[in-house]
Each structure stands twice: as C-alpha cells, then as structure tokens.
C-alpha cells in the first residue's frame, strides 16, 4: 500500500480522533493552568436611618465583561495542581507535622478530596479486576460442563449485566438494596437489625460498589474464557490424563497456562475500564462515602453554581497521568516486541 493511499483511507478517522481526542487533551492541559476570575467587588454605600455603612458587592456587569473578554479565566500556573483540592502539598505537610503516628497521618491524608478519590479509584480497580477474572473463570469452567441444551440460555442471561447501561444496572440494584427494597429488607431480617442500611456506612458503600463492579464485569471475562476453553487442545488434555493427572492438575497445568494470554487481555481491558469508574457512584448516589477521580471531575463541572473548569481540568490531567502509568507495562512490552521484530 502506498503512503498516499494509506493517508487517504485513514484521513477521516484521523481527523475526528485529532479534533475530538487529541485536541481536547491539549485543551485540558491548557485549561488546567487557568482559574476562575476573582470576583470584581465594588464598594457600595448603604445609607439608612442609622447612618451610612459601606458594603462590598459583586459587580455583575464587570464580571460579565471580564468573562466575555477572557473566557479562560486568569492564569494560575501550576497553582491549581498544588491547592487543597488536588495535590495539597501544604495540607499534607501540616497533617504530617500535627499527627502523632503514621497511621494518623495517613488517615488525615486520605480525607483530602483528591487522595480520597484516588484511593477509592485504585481500590476499585485492583479489587474488582482480579475478582472478576477469577469468578468469570469459575463460571466458564462450570458452564462448559453443562449439557449443550442449556449453554445458549445461560450465556443469554449472563450477558445482561454487562450489556445493560452501567447507570441503569446500578439503579436496578440500588432500588433492590434500598431499606424498602427486596435485598435491603431481607438483609435487615437476616442480621436482625432494622437500622441496617447499605448506604449509611462508607465500608458498606464501598463493598456495594465493588459487588456491582464484579457483577457488571463477570460476563466479559466469562465469555472470553468460555470461548478460550473451546479451543484448549484435546490432545494435551488426553496425554495428561494418560500420565495420570487428576482433574485439578489438568486445570492447573494444562488449562490455566493455555488461557493465561486471555487473562492478560481481560486484565488490560478491565484495568482501563475500572479506572474510569464513575456511573455506579451516580447510580448508587454514593458520593458521600465514595468518590472516584472521574466523579471529582463531574462534580467540578456539575456540582456548584458555576462550573470549575480549571479544577476539573487539573483533576483530568492527573487522571490522564494515572492512565499512562497504568498502561506503561503494556507500552514497554509492545516496545520490546516491536524492537525485537524489526
């Protein structure tokens, strides 16, 4: 294929990706250096029956004009990165100085908004991903032993949690775990505690979100493993049986090594998807007890009276940085493969 042909075929795709993925990342980087205008205050003299007093008021006309001429806000350099809602250098120093033990300091730091979101995001990513790989494998092995007649319907229902819109799936579960819903009410009966609510305590909220995450992602790993199981070489299985391998040994030494590349693939996909966890927090209204990096950005854009573009952009930059760290092993591996090939 000639270079010109390649370019002609790729052009439309390249243009949309450049305009709507690469450029916005640049725009986010630029925006993160700016911060909202300070409010323009005017002194107004208020005279009443008891004398005059001056009062500071926001000058709306001047604010509108400033917004018109400089929509980005004012330049703030890396100030936003360092402030209390992001990396919070000064706050960490203060917490470190004032706390008696390391545990004390860590719990103080984990209450800072950015670190709180980061910790939840990482916990979600690294708890849900392995769990869904293990459970998906278990379901796949079990479904594989069923008679063929049942396999189709089982796969059909298994796909539902993954295919359904994340926010809709989390709402469906949210209504069921409500104290007035079927699961919530039965949990109260089971633990004999009429006050029990999965929404009240941070720990229970986290567990609920993790359970949702696993529920949502099992189908993906199940289907991939199930398809992989169909291609496990029968000869190897047979010969291992001739050698006297037990059922467990066959799975451990033949099936699992054979499916390992699939597990790596699932892990990569799940890490990428779980790191952006966002919809379940909205669906479960869990923001009081659990926020993720994506939720923080959403909150900056939607939460207050006026959107905090600078703050959202800064969290976005830090998130993108996190994604790149997460992908580094993959990128290094591809680089090695690539240099070996050429």
């Amino acid at each position: 294929m000639k270079h010109s042909h390649f370019l002609a075929f790729m052009a439309p795709s390249l243009i949309v990706m450049l305009l709507f993925i690469a450029l916005p990342i640049g725009s986010v980087a630029y925006q993160s250096l700016f911060v909202e205008h300070e409010q323009v205050l005017v002194e107004v003299e208020n005279c009443g029956p008891f004398g005059c007093e001056t009062e500071a008021r926001v000058d709306n006309a001047a604010m509108a004009e400033l917004q018109e001429t400089k929509p980005m806000g004012r330049f703030n350099g890396i100030g936003t990165y360092l402030n209390a809602t992001h990396l919070a250098g000064n706050e960490i120093k203060a917490i470190w100085a004032n706390s008696s033990s390391i545990g004390d300091a860590l719990s103080g730091i984990s209450n800072l908004p950015f670190y709180k979101a980061l910790i939840f995001t990482l916990a979600y990513t690294f708890i849900v991903t392995p769990l869904c790989i293990i459970l998906g494998f278990l379901v796949a092995v079990c479904v594989n032993t069923l008679p063929n007649l049942f396999k189709g319907p089982v796969i059909f229902f298994s796909l539902l949690p993954m295919i359904v819109t994340p926010i809709i799936g989390s709402l469906v579960l949210f209504w069921m775990i409500d104290a007035r819903g079927v699961i919530g009410a039965n949990l109260q009966l089971l633990f004999n505690d009429p006050q029990l609510s999965l929404k009240a305590s941070p720990t229970l909220t986290w567990i609920t979100l993790f359970v949702y995450g696993v529920w949502h992602s099992i189908p993906f790993s199940f289907v991939v493993f199930y398809a992989g199981l169909q291609t496990v070489p029968q000869d190897t299985l047979e010969s291992s049986m001739v050698d006297g391998a037990t059922r467990w040994q066959r799975i451990r030494y033949v099936v699992i090594p054979y499916l390992m590349p699939l597990a790596v693939f699932i892990a990569l996909m799940q890490l990428m998807d779980n790191f952006r966890v966002f919809e379940p927090i909205v669906g479960f209204s869990a923001q009081a007890n659990a926020t993720s990096l994506s939720y923080q950005i959403y909150n900056d854009l939607r939460g207050g009276d006026s959107p905090l573009y600078g703050s959202a952009a800064t969290t976005s930059m830090l998130t993108i940085f996190g994604v790149i760290i997460l992908l580094t092993p993959v990128l290094i591996r591809t680089w090695h493969d690539f240099t070996r090939k050429t």
Partner: peptide, 13 residues
C-alpha cells in the same frame, strides 16, 4: 484508555 469525562472537561469551554 482515556476516561471519557477527562475529554468532556476539555470540550465544554
């Protein structure tokens, strides 16, 4: 791998 919301925060303004 980019979280969609990081891109959206770049679009809005």
């Amino acid at each position: 791998a980019m979280p969609h919301i990081t891109l959206v925060s770049g679009y809005l303004l």
